[in-house]
Amino acid sequence: MTESVEKSLIFKLTSAIIVTAGVVATCITYFYENYRVPMKVLEVTLEYKNVAETSTKTKKEIDEVKTAHLETQKKLTDTELQVGELNERIVSQNLTIQKLHLANLFQANFYPVGYGRPRVGDSVDELKSLYSSKDVHWNSDGEWKVKVSIPDGYFESIEYDYDEKTRVISAVMFAAAPSTKKALVSLISDIGGPPVKSKRGEIYRWDVNNGQSGYLVSHRLWMIMGEGMEPLLWKEP
C-alpha cells in the first residue's frame, strides 16, 4: 500500500514538473514572440533610421560642396576669360605701338630716332654723357669697340668701332632683336631709295652722306660705316 502511494505521489510530482516546465516554456515563447522580437525589430528600425538620417545629412553636405565647387569653377572660368580678353587687348595695343614706332624708326640721316648721337666721325667719349655706365661695355680684348645695351626698343644694342689714338668713331652697328621681321629693308628704302644688293648673302647697301655707306646684313644688323669701309661678306654686284 505504501509503495503504491509513493508511486502515485512520484507520478503526480513528475506530472506537475512537466506541466510547470511546459508553462514556463510557453511563457518564454510568448514573451520572446510578443516582447523580445518586436523590441529587436524596433531597435533595428531605429538604428536604420539613424543611418538613413546620417546618410541624408552626408549627401546634403556633399551636394553643398559640389555646388560651391561649381560656383568656384564658374568664377575661375569667368576670370580666365577676362584675363584672356585683357591679354588680347594688350597684344593688340603693343602691335599698334610697334607699327607706330616702326613708321617713325629712322631719321632722314639714316640713324634711328633717339640714337643720332654719337655718329660716325664723332668722339666715342660722348657715350659717357649719354648713357649710364652700367649700359656701356668697353671692350678689353684689344679691339677698339664699345657696346651699348638697350633694355627696351626695336634695337637691342649698338656697337661702335673707333680709332685707338683719335677715339673717333669709324662705324656704328645697330642690332635688331632676333624676332625682327624683314621690315628694315622697306623702312630704310623709304628714306634712301632702292638698295644695291651684294652678290653674296643677304646684304644691302645705301649711300648715306659724305662718302659713308649703310649696310643691312641678314635683315637685322644695320651698319653705318666710314668712307672706304664695308662688311667682310660684301661683294660688289
Rank of each mutant, 00 (worst) to 15 (best):
K49V: 02
K40N: 15
K60S: 13
T58C: 01
I62W: 06
K75R: 11
E71M: 01
T77S: 11
Y30D: 08
K60M: 06
R36G: 02
E61A: 13
P38R: 02
V44F: 10
E53N: 13
T58S: 09
K75E: 08
L46C: 06
K74T: 09
V65L: 13
E33K: 11
T45Q: 15
M39T: 11
T45E: 15
T77I: 08
T58R: 07
Y35R: 10
T26P: 00
E64L: 10
A68L: 06
I28P: 01
V37N: 06
E53M: 06
E53C: 00
V65R: 09
T29M: 06
E61T: 04
E61W: 07
I18H: 11
V19K: 14
K60W: 03
K75N: 09
Y48S: 13
A68W: 03
T54Y: 14
I28K: 04
K66D: 11
V51E: 10
L70S: 11
K57M: 03
V24W: 03
N50H: 06
A21S: 15
E47N: 12
T45W: 03
V37C: 07
T58M: 11
T58Q: 10
K49Q: 13
V65D: 01
E61I: 04
K59A: 14
N34I: 02
K66E: 05
T54A: 15
L46H: 10
C27Q: 02
V41N: 15
Y35M: 03
L76I: 12
H69T: 08
A52Q: 07
V19T: 13
Y32P: 04
L42S: 12
K74W: 00
M39D: 09
E33T: 04
K49C: 03
L46Q: 10
T26E: 04
V19H: 10
K40S: 15
A52Y: 09
L46K: 06
Q73I: 05
C27G: 02
E47S: 02
T67Y: 02
E47R: 07
A25D: 04
K74C: 00
G22F: 08
A21W: 08
A16S: 07
R36W: 09
K74D: 07
T45M: 11
T58V: 09
E64Y: 04
T54Q: 15
N50A: 10
T26M: 07
V65E: 05
I18A: 14
F31Y: 13
V65K: 13
Y48T: 12
I18C: 08
N34R: 07
V44Q: 12
I62T: 05
